[in-house]
Amino acid sequence: MNNQSLYILVVEDQHNIAQNISDYMENKGHVLDFATQGDQGLELALTNHYDLVILDLNLPVIDGLEVCKQLRKQANHHVPVIMLTARDSIEDKISGFTLGADDYLTKPFSLEELEVRCLALSRRYLLQTNHSLTFDQLIIDRKSQQVTRAGTPLELHSMGYRILSILAEAYPQVVSRSKLSQKLWGDEPTESDALRSHIYQLRNVLDKPFDYPMIKTMHGIGFVLNVKSDIKNDEK
C-alpha cells in the first residue's frame, strides 16, 4: 500500500525501462513526467518543483552526470536525485555522488526497491525542512520534541522519543535491531535486554491506549513504523 504520492521526473532514453517505471509507479499513485534527452530533463527539472528526479546516466545530448552537475549549479533548491546506470564500478558511483547524486541504483533493478528508495529519499529531505511530521494519527514536533497521537499528548522518555524519531526518519524502511542499537548507543556496549525494555515502554505509551499499534515488529529483521493512511508533512 502506497502511503505517499510523489511528483517524479524520469529522465530515461530507453522506452521499455521508462514504460516499466511508469506502469509501476503510477499504479502506486505517483505522478510522473518524462524526458528522453539530458537537456530536456534538465529544463524540466529547473522549471518544475519535483519531489525527486530518477536520472539515467547514459543519455543523448547531455549525459546524466552533466545533468546532475548543472542541476546542482542552477536550481534554487535541492532536488533529490536517484541515478540509474548499467555501470556498477566504484569509480562511476563516486563520480555520481561527487556531482550531487543522492542515491544510486544499478540496472537491472527491482521496481519495488526503486519506489522504496524514492519514498525514503523524499522523506529524508522533508525531514531536513519540516519541523512537524504527521503519520496518520501521529504528530512529531521535532522543534519542541513533543509527540501527540489522535490529539493526545504522549509522555515519552527521551529514549522513547529517540527510537520513534529513528523509525520516522527511516520510514517506510525497516530498521534492524543492530542499526537501532548503534544509533542509540553507538559503539558503547549495553545490556542485551535494554532495547527490548525501551521498545516495551514506548509501546505502552504510543500503542496500548489506541486502536492499532504503530510500532510493528518484523520478526528476525527489526522494526518499522506502521502507518494506516496517507502521510502528510507540514512545514511550520
Rank of each mutant, 00 (worst) to 15 (best):
D193T: 02
H131E: 10
R124Q: 15
I139Y: 02
D103F: 08
V147E: 08
L119I: 11
R162T: 13
R177Q: 13
L195Q: 00
R149K: 14
S158I: 11
C118L: 08
S158K: 04
R196H: 07
R177L: 10
N130Y: 13
Q173W: 03
S176M: 08
S178F: 00
V227R: 05
Q146V: 12
E188A: 15
Q128C: 09
F135Q: 05
V175I: 15
Q201Y: 02
S144C: 06
Q182N: 12
V174K: 08
K107D: 07
D187L: 09
I199E: 02
I140Y: 07
V224I: 15
R196P: 00
F135T: 01
F210D: 06
T106E: 11
L127A: 13
V174W: 01
D193M: 03
I163L: 03
K208E: 09
K183P: 02
Y125E: 12
V227Q: 06
L127Q: 14
R124I: 04
A168E: 04
L164W: 03
L138D: 03
Y171W: 14
Q182E: 11
S132T: 14
F135K: 08
L184G: 01
D141Q: 14
E115F: 09
V116S: 11
L225K: 03
P172W: 06
I139D: 11
T134N: 14
F135P: 03
Y171S: 01
D207S: 08
R117C: 11
G220R: 01
L206P: 00
L156E: 02
G160K: 00
H157C: 12
D103G: 04
Q201E: 07
V147Y: 11
T106K: 09
S158V: 13
L121M: 09
V175P: 02
C118N: 05
L111W: 12
Q145Y: 06
D187Q: 13
S192L: 10
L126Y: 15
Y171T: 06
T129K: 10
I166G: 05
E155P: 08
I215Y: 03
V205K: 06
Q173R: 15
W185Q: 03
L133F: 12
T148W: 09
D211C: 04
L126N: 13
T134C: 08
L180C: 00
V116L: 15
D187E: 13
Y171E: 04
V224C: 06
A170H: 10
D211Q: 11
R149C: 11
L127G: 14
F210Y: 12
Y212A: 10
K216Q: 14
Q137L: 08
I163Q: 00
P189Q: 04
A170S: 13
H131M: 12
Q128V: 10
D187V: 03
D136T: 04
S122C: 15
P189S: 11
S165I: 07
Y171I: 03
